[in-house]
Amino acid sequence: MSERHLIVLNVNGTEYEAVVEPRKTLLDVLRHDLGLTGTHVGCEHGVCGACTVLVDDAPVRACLMFAVQAEGSDIRTVESLATNRALSDLQEAFSANHALQCGFCTPGFLMLAEGFLAERPDADREEIREAVSANLCRCTGYQTIVDAISTTAARRRAACPHPEKEATTP
Rank of each mutant, 00 (worst) to 15 (best):
C51W: 07
H40K: 09
L34T: 02
V78N: 02
V55F: 08
V47C: 02
H5M: 10
D28R: 09
E71D: 02
C43D: 02
E44T: 04
M65S: 07
L9S: 08
Y16T: 07
M1Y: 14
I7L: 04
G49A: 11
T39V: 03
V20F: 10
N10I: 14
V47M: 06
R23A: 12
G38F: 09
L54K: 01
L27V: 05
S80W: 13
A70D: 00
C63T: 01
D33E: 05
E79K: 06
G38W: 01
D56R: 08
N10W: 07
L64R: 07
V8E: 11
M1A: 12
T83L: 10
I7D: 00
P22G: 11
C51P: 00
E44I: 08
V19C: 13
T25W: 01
L64K: 12
V53S: 06
L36S: 04
M1V: 15
V20T: 09
D28G: 14
T52V: 15
F66Y: 12
S80R: 09
H45A: 11
D74L: 14
G49K: 07
G35V: 12
D74P: 02
V55K: 04
M1W: 15
L81K: 03
L6S: 11
T52D: 05
G46Y: 12
P59D: 01
P22K: 12
V68G: 00
Q69M: 12
F66D: 04
G13T: 11
H40T: 11
E15D: 13
L36H: 06
I7G: 00
R61T: 13
D74S: 13
V8W: 10
S2C: 05
D57C: 14
E79H: 12
S73K: 11
S2Q: 14
D33K: 08
D33L: 11
V19T: 14
V55Q: 04
A58L: 15
V20I: 10
R31T: 11
H40L: 10
E3V: 14
A62T: 00
L81S: 05
C63H: 00
C63N: 08
C43R: 08
V78I: 15
A18G: 13
L81R: 04
Q69N: 05
V11D: 03
E44R: 06
P59L: 10
V68S: 07
M1H: 14
A62P: 06
C63Q: 00
G13V: 11
R76K: 13
T77N: 08
V68E: 03
V47F: 15
C43K: 01
M65H: 03
N12K: 09
T83Q: 09
T14R: 01
L6N: 12
H5I: 14
G35W: 12
C63P: 00
V11K: 05
